[in-house]
Amino acid sequence: MTPKTAAQAGTFESSDVLFLIEPLPEKSGRKIELFSTVLHQYGESFNKIVTEMLDDYALTDIHIIARDKGALEPTIKARLETAINRSLQNIQQV
C-alpha cells in the first residue's frame, strides 16, 4: 500500500521528531532518510521502530524523511502514526 498524499507530523523542537511522508510509485519500495542529533547512538533503533510501524500499516511504497532531535520512542511512534493517519485520511477524502 502507498499513501496517496504527502503528510507531515511533529516539530523541530528538542525531544521531538518531524516526519515527512510522501507516496512513491508502486513497487518502488521504502525510502527512509533519517537526520538525527543522536544518529550514532539511536539510528538503528529509530530505523527499527519506523520499519515495524510501516509493516503494521502495510505501507510498502513510501518516502520518509525524519528530522530527529532526540525524541523518545513514544514520541517517535506518535509522530509517525500521526503522519500516517493524516496521509491515509486524505486518501479517504479524495
Binding site: V38, H40, Q41, Y42, G43, E44, S45, L72, E73
Partner: peptide, 9 residues
C-alpha cells in the same frame, strides 16, 4: 528504559 540503550561508540 526511558531513553532506550544507546548503541556503543
Amino acid at each position: 528504559l526511558i531513553t532506550g540503550v544507546p548503541g556503543p561508540l
